[in-house]
Structure formats: C-alpha cells, structure tokens
Design a protein around this nucleic acid. Structure first.
Lengths: 114, 114
DNA sequence: TATTGACTTAGAGTGCGCTCGAAGTTGTAG
DNA sequence: CTACAACTTCGAGCGCACTCTAAGTCAATA
C-alpha cells in the first residue's frame, strides 16, 4: 500500500510515518522504482504495536532500542523480552498509581455534594 | 515554611514552584516583609493534589482552569465538580486502554518463549 | 500531452512542561 | 559586622514528539 493508505489505516499522518522512518523507528520502506514508499501488512502491524508502546508511555528512545533489536533478528529475542518485561512492569505500576489517584478524585468529587 | 522546605516536601524544585505561581497554577504566596515567600499546609495540599492531576495526565491548561475556579470561591463548586468528573471519566477510560495494552504486552512476552 | 494531485527531501517551527543561569537582595550564623 | 547561603526576578534554553513548509518529482487521468 502507499503511504497515504497506511496513514489512514494507522491514524498517523504521512509526515509522521516518514518521521518514524527517519529516526529509525521504522525500517526503511522499499520503493516503487526507487521513488515512492510502499508498505505491507507487517509495517501496519509494527505501527500498531508501536502505538501501544506509546499509549503505555514508552519514550521513543526506548522504542528505538527495541526497533534496533528487532532489526538484528532472532538472536536478540532474550533482550527484547527483557525490555518488554521491564516496560510491562512499569505500566502495571503506573496503572496502580492511576487507580489510587482515581480514588482521590472520587472522594474530591463526592466532597462537592456536601 | 520557606520555599526550600516546600520543595523538599513536595519533591518539586523551588524553580518549579515559582514557575507554578508565575503561570497561575498556585495563588501568589504571601511574603515575609514583602520579600521571601512563605507557605502553609494548604499550599502543600494543593501541590499534592495538582501532582495527582498531573499523574493522571491532565494538561496544565485544564489545571489552570480548575485553579481559577478554586480562586473564585464556593460559587464555582458546580463547575469544579463537573471538571473533575469529566477528568475522572477520561482517566478511567485511559486505565481501560492501558489494561488492554498490558494484555498485548503479556502475549508478546509469552511469545518469546516459543 | 497537459494537468493535477500525491509523492519526495531537507530543514525549520511548534507546544508542552519544565529547567537553568545571571545578577542582584536578604536573613542568619559566627 | 561580616560572610555566605538562600532567597528574588527575568528571561533564555532544553528535550520531547511531532508538524509543517518549500521546492521539487512522479504518475495517473482527461
């Protein structure tokens, strides 16, 4: 697919997709006759996964590390797993924090009914 | 207390506390003889609450709106409650999203054991 | 074949939330 | 009384993650 289609399907702008490639967050896209980028489903899946990392608060620096490991092939599996595990644990902790904040918010909101 | 003590007790820097005052996120602190700021427990509580709003992803713009309502006194209670309720609902939704992402992460991590 | 719209690059600009530096003033400890 | 640490203001600078502009190239349609 063309970059415009990928943009629509991921909800990103074509600008942002090129930016991701430029910084190394996406592998260089193959070109139609050395000019226009074209993408397959794998690229779509990757962007969707990156989106989840982003939603869960992973900074781009760390995503770049993961992308680098991915590009290095299966030999990096152990390190990739470690990276994701560490991130998952951080996310779990953050969720706990948010739930605690929700209780404070609920109490504050209830307080306005006095 | 002095700004340095408030800084220690909130985990913010004195720079950041002054910045919060400058942008209107904190009411202007009373001064010791028109010079040094001094704070009471109420200021500490406010910063802690602002910290929870921050943790839960509220942008400063919206905090400013809340701070403004707070400064306006009890007549703004209804609007303050509405603002917090809206925010709480957004946080709840975000927590749901994070939990969904956690499932994806768990699956991905488990996949490395194949 | 001519036009139009989507693509390309390089680089500048934006908004957020601080964070720091400089230069000067004040309050306390010795 | 002196030294010095902590305070003050103002404004510049920073890191992040885009976001946009300009100027040019390419491809499909009328």
């Amino acid at each position: 697919m063309k970059i415009s289609e990928l943009a629509v399907r991921t909800g990103l702008s074509a600008h942002t997709i090129r930016y991701y490639e430029r910084i190394g967050l996406m592998p260089p896209a193959p070109r139609d006759g050395a000019t226009h980028r074209h993408y397959d489903e794998r690229a779509l899946n990757w962007i969707e996964f990156v989106g989840r990392l982003k939603t869960t608060g992973m900074p781009i620096r760390q995503m770049l590390r993961y992308a680098e490991l991915r590009a290095a092939g299966p030999s990096s599996n152990a390190e990739r797993k470690a990276l994701l595990t560490e991130h998952r644990d951080a996310v779990r902790q953050h969720v706990e924090e948010l739930i605690a904040c929700l209780e404070v918010l609920d109490a504050k909101i209830a307080g306005y009914d006095d």
